[in-house]
């Protein structure tokens, strides 16, 4: 095995570069080294000006999403040896404005997230003194997968709809809305409906499915979106056919 590998890293210095330029660095090729280890090696020993985000280096904080050889990846969970002999092309996540080098601006997501009310909505909050809301393991299983989202933004980076229609709520935000809709303790499905059923909501999704393919946590946002489409469509049809009954049923089942 070679002892070094080339990282071709996208550099963008606002005010200096009009668009990113690629810069090559030679880093040690070692077993167990993630792309992130290569980048920190660059930062520590070769070029202190390279900027990128990272923190937990164990695939749970969601900071270090990057485009590696064209694929959105967590750079802490993608390994140099898997790309040997290289070179490895490291770019910022696609579909986001680039702030600097490998750092992208995710404010759009941070603005959209609260719109889907990703918190428990209840008509009446029971006092904690009365103990927990009961939830069986089966009920937990209903939404658990969608609660695994680490907000790493790989799904937005892989989504062509988001790139073409920036107003799209996007995979992670919808999956998190579904995470609460499917939680037996939550009564907020009605409040989330307008946003989710809007043209910028689930109906913007054309089911490319890449969000789920690139998700490092197996969340399956594409599944969440399609399932919500089914729910929304069924509900609309019900309301069309039996407006009074369905409204009563809805208000009962959703508190």
């Amino acid at each position: 095995m070679a002892t070094e590998i080339t990282l071709e890293v996208a550099r963008y210095r606002p005010g200096v570069d009009s668009e990113p330029v690629m810069q090559s660095y030679q880093v040690p090729l070692r077993e167990h080294w993630a792309i992130l280890d290569g980048l920190t090696y660059v930062k520590d020993h070769l070029d202190g000006t390279l900027s990128f985000r990272w923190s937990c280096r164990m695939g749970i904080c969601g900071s270090c999403g990057m485009t590696v050889n064209g694929e959105p990846q967590l750079s802490c969970a993608t390994f140099l040896t898997d790309y040997a002999p290289g070179p490895i092309r490291v770019e910022p996540l696609h579909n986001f404005p680039v702030v600097r080098d490998l750092v992208v601006d995710i404010d759009d997501f941070m603005t959209k997230l609260p719109k889907v009310k990703p918190w428990v909505v209840r008509e009446v909050q029971s006092p904690v003194e009365e103990g927990e809301y009961l939830q069986t393991p089966e009920e937990l299983d209903e939404y658990q997968q969608f609660s695994m989202c680490i907000n790493c933004m790989l799904c937005y980076s892989a989504c062509p709809v988001y790139s073409l229609e920036p107003d799209f709520l996007g995979p992670a935000a919808i999956a998190l809305a579904q995470r609460y809709n499917l939680d037996s303790r939550d009564e907020g499905a009605d409040e989330r409906r307008d946003v989710l059923s809007s043209p910028e909501g689930v109906w913007a999704c054309t089911f490319v499915g890449e969000c789920s393919a690139v998700c490092p946590k197996g969340v399956d946002p594409a599944g969440a979106i399609q399932r919500y489409k089914l729910t929304a469509a069924t509900q609309s049809i019900k309301e069309l056919l039996m407006p009074r009954i369905s409204r009563r049923l809805n208000s009962r089942s959703q508190g």
């Binding site: 570069d17 790139s163 890449e210």
Partner: peptide
């Protein structure tokens, strides 16, 4: 702050097999 916005080109859908 000036950010860089990657342009969407006409053949974007050739970038990935899934696209």
């Amino acid at each position: 702050m000036s950010v860089y916005q990657r342009p969407v080109h006409l053949l974007w859908w050739l970038e990935r097999r899934a696209y």
